[in-house]
Design a protein around this nucleic acid. Structure first.
Lengths: 251, 251
DNA sequence: CGTGTTCTTGATGCCTTTCAAAAAGGGTGG
DNA sequence: CCACCCTTTTTGAAAGGCATCAAGAACACG
């Protein structure tokens, strides 16, 4: 929508990317990082609520989310909307959209975000010159599919309370892996409407179930930050396996 | 399960692969096909119901489904199961499982299937030597994610009747693109339990809704074959966009 | 401090689940 | 070819979870 964005190479070069220092990410050779930096054409800041990729777009670029949260979504003709998955710093944005001829989904910034732009035209180049990066690109694509798999399983099989518990736990772990958790709490920028769209529930029922779990002492929300008060009980209610996260590539 | 399978290079070499002749698939150079053939180590036949990849498996190979149907699924600790997507001839089987360290899902043969085996160890080789094939591998991965996106949207946003209509229409188009539709009907090997697991509905409600749509004249099922009697109405009830399929790579 | 948005809460009704059992197939052995 | 058993499908009845409608409360913002 209102793409009031600042262009230009803001901030530090990829070699000194602060994200790269986080233990969540695999080490890369200087060679690889230089290639990434050469491929990167832009560093943009987009306000919360802006469309990073809009549904049907046929010239979507590939991005890495540098900071902030975003989400992928898909709409039905009558306006119903499903949030497919959430994107956190370090995640690829628009891989599917830049590989396929047109985006079958939209991607929206949930908070103000910073993205690193990689033109779709250069992706082929990456496959030719940097097979290791190409492999990691595919790896990240599979990882995203894995997250959608989880969400589909949640929406298809869990009831309202379990879905919320599973979402909260999963986001907590993802934020934790990025060092975004401090004193048990992390920034939680979702509105109830967005929660509802992600969970496949109505706004009203989401609100009621959400406050029921809060009152049950599973977690608390204040000042836009969520505190996981009872991780044990939350995980149990979610009926979730908790695979350890493991490191991943950052491109 | 009962992996009573016949090994060996059954049938024709890849250069003469009958699947490749179908208009659904992109033409490939002889070079590419030769590489694929060299990479292929086996051609297996597995009976209906067998596990092609089991959940948690950490040495899953990559396959191309040569004939038959399969599905990816994910289970919760208490036994609830969600079918994530269906696999038809020409689809990759186990890309996610062979890229990530362990399979987060299972893949089961829905009918008797034939699969072409590509050892996971050689995937890296493919990225180094054949960037075009590597690109197409990623492309196929994105296409699968796209299908999971659709299913998540269906389960999250559509009611029972709409979900069934959407599934039937989608499978019809996929079968049609493969030339599997004759006289308006195609083989439909799903049990109601599998339908229910794919739709995120109970078995009973699936059965009732299914027969309601049949009685409404949307489609008919007999002798294991489904006939789409009223495509217009079915698509309308599904509230679905029908993007034209387009060709895709076959690896 | 007014105004629009987001969140909460209550009441009502329907879609879906669960429980239960009958009916219909499918395969095997006598 | 029929009897028998097991699985799958169908149908009925009752309960409950979730959606919808409606309106008040809390919050954000200019």
């Amino acid at each position: 929508m209102n793409q009031m964005m600042r262009h230009g190479r803001v901030g530090t070069p990829c070699l000194a990317c602060p994200l790269r220092l986080k233990p969540a990410f695999k080490d890369k050779t200087d060679d690889e990082i230089r290639f990434i930096q050469a491929m990167k054409t832009d560093h943009r800041i987009l306000p919360a609520g802006s469309d990073i990729i809009h549904p049907g777009q046929d010239d979507a670029e590939l991005y890495t989310l540098f900071s902030g949260w975003a989400f992928r979504y898909k709409s039905l003709p009558d306006g119903r909307r499903q949030i497919l998955n959430f994107l956190l710093p370090g995640d690829l944005v628009g891989l599917q959209a830049s590989l396929l001829s047109a985006a079958e989904h939209g991607i929206e910034a949930l908070t103000e975000v910073e993205v690193c732009t990689f033109p779709r035209k250069r992706i082929w180049d990456l496959f030719v010159k940097m097979p290791n990066l190409a492999y990691e690109l595919s790896w990240l694509g599979s990882r995203e599919e894995c997250m959608v798999d989880d969400n589909l399983t949640s929406v298809g099989q869990r009831n309202a309370g379990e879905r919320i518990a599973a979402l909260v736990i999963t986001l907590f772990h993802r934020a934790d892996a990025l060092g975004l958790v401090s004193q048990g709490s992390f920034e939680f920028p979702l509105s109830q409407q967005q929660l509802a769209d992600a969970l496949g529930l109505s706004l009203v029922h989401t609100s009621k179930t959400w406050s029921r779990l809060r009152k049950a002492g599973l977690f608390a929300l204040s000042g836009g930050r969520l505190t996981l008060l009872n991780p044990r009980l939350t995980a149990h209610m979610a009926a979730i396996y908790n695979r350890p996260a493991g490191v991943r590539p950052l491109i």
